[in-house]
Design a protein around this nucleic acid. Structure first.
Lengths: 144, 144
DNA sequence: TATTGTTATACTCTATAACTATA
DNA sequence: TATAGTTATAGAGTATAACAATA
């Protein structure tokens, strides 16, 4: 086990603190490519799941739909996503990835894989895979 | 492996996103006890490591020393920590936990252990232990 | 000159409230 | 009435710049 009282460094505490560190590191990496973490999350989800309405998109990235508006505005201005009115439902605006957006996601993802090495330097190759697997399972349980 | 392109959901992306979720959940729990995440982090570190100067303390919780000042002011006003001038170095102010602070940390840690169950519902008991261990190793590698 | 602690300020992320339009 | 999208605004968390006191 540990030489410290385990309850003081429970998973919630650790995940919250480490997540804060990771978010800073991640934002700094993305900033070099002039993309915010929220923008990248949108691009990734659209690339994986295809076009989505804004409410579905917001839930998929665990962001409030109100705060998604400005993110989509900025992505749209840069030509990375498009918003099209849904003919079947006048309220909906379907968001989709443009070819330029698709190209950017692929490039960033490749670069990001290299950038992670330093942050996870405490773990060996096998533990990194285990870690990523556990993270994904917990993450997916919260975003559906 | 996965049915999705693994590079898109690398560890940096997942940790940053999940950490954001965990931080919200964690802050909500602490708010019920009128404590902020930053305040709790200070209390935990002081409880583990004993009295510290503000620069050492800031590094231990991975927070900028400038942003630590207001946190310590609020904790001091509530009588949870004390700041004493260091006789050996006039610049330093040594921060230490008061009995009331120590008591609060212990109570919160016990309550937090119960509150984590829902957030980690996707993992079994053994995987939770593995997850916590991996988190701690990565976290410690960044905070010394 | 370097370090400790501090203030002021700005920027990002998130949350609260209220609104429009469509169903 | 319920839902999709939007706006305005306020609150945390963090980062940049500059400063005083001490080493």
């Amino acid at each position: 086990m540990s030489d410290r009282p385990a309850y003081e460094r429970g998973t919630g505490f650790l995940l919250s603190r480490l997540g804060s560190l990771a978010a800073r590191s991640w934002a700094a990496f993305l900033a070099e490519h002039e993309v915010s973490p929220g923008q990248y999350a949108v691009l990734v989800v659209l690339n994986e799941q295809g076009p989505l309405g804004q409410v579905s998109l917001a839930r998929s990235i665990a962001v409030d739909a109100r705060n998604l508006v400005a993110v989509l505005d900025s992505l749209s201005e840069r030509g990375l996503v498009g918003r099209a009115a849904d003919p079947a439902d006048g309220r909906r605006r379907v968001v989709s990835l443009t070819p330029a957006g698709k190209s950017l996601v692929d490039d960033l993802a490749t670069a990001a894989a290299r950038g992670q090495d330093d942050f996870l330097r405490a773990l060996g190759t096998r533990d990194r895979d285990r870690f990523t697997d556990l993270l994904r399972r917990v993450y997916d349980s919260h975003t559906g």
